[in-house]
Design a protein around this nucleic acid. Sequence first.
DNA 1: GTGTTTGCAAACACTTTGCATCCAA
DNA 2: TTGGATGCAAAGTGTTTGCAAACAC
Lengths: 145, 145
Amino acid sequence: MSISAEQFFLNYLEETGLNMTPQRMSIVQTFLETEGHFSADRLCELVREKAPEIGQATVYRTLKLLIESGLADTIDGPDGGVLYERAYGRAHHDHLMCLKCKRKVEIFDPVIEERQEQIAREHGFTLTRHRMYLYGLCPDCASDD
Amino acid sequence: MSISAEQFFLNYLEETGLNMTPQRMSIVQTFLETEGHFSADRLCELVREKAPEIGQATVYRTLKLLIESGLADTIDGPDGGVLYERAYGRAHHDHLMCLKCKRKVEIFDPVIEERQEQIAREHGFTLTRHRMYLYGLCPDCASDD
DNA sequence: GTGTTTGCAAACACTTTGCATCCAA
DNA sequence: TTGGATGCAAAGTGTTTGCAAACAC
């Protein structure tokens, strides 16, 4: 976590032999400014508020680079859609979400993380990454019933 | 697990005011005969091997019913696609998959299950369901490097 | 200059829908 | 008889791609 996210992305581009461009810069900045989870389409809107001339294909292409570089991460909702969130400079976490109001809580549990490693090891697997989603009703929605 | 899967589905249809039809019967049977994880498209193919006249829309519609009834469950692969598997009469489990050869191992860990409940409770959530995917390299693929 | 990147629109894969017809109860 | 079910084809999603022009280095 010693270098900035922008620098991190620049390094990635360089290593991969790709160029920085105004469009990519805009998209990365917007991405970094945006909190929480959002769809590709939503990011597109946000980018275009500042730079309407940027095509959606470019946003999709850049989002792909962000993921490959490790700046971004995807999450998949219970409904099937794909969302993105910032990953670089943040600790790993999983998600707990409310099926009704869609509220999301980021969670982290060392016990679970440890068991995951353990389980993979028992099967001879080398663990690369994992995803865990807990779905249920938040306190507010549970009491609405 | 006291009644058969077919009966279970019949009950669901009845409760929901829907009818059993030859097409649904074919699809459910094919679904139950098919081991492992498969795409909607793959199920379509299998169904059509026996009953070529069944439309894909019907397969999709029936698959939806299978999920609503609880007979089927969806899983999402690391690559984004949606797969289906049999759920009724089987214990809950999570998945460990090889990123290279796509091999999948079904796993279950009481410690993790317990912690998940615990975490949800700590946040005031009522847990409905969860998904956990572990991704990595299986023994064979790891040694290929 | 040369290879990369862009915007556009068309292509894509997968899933859902509208509709006229057909069928189960 | 009547509301649900079907097949077909068309319409949606959300994402990717081909291409000629524009650009970064």
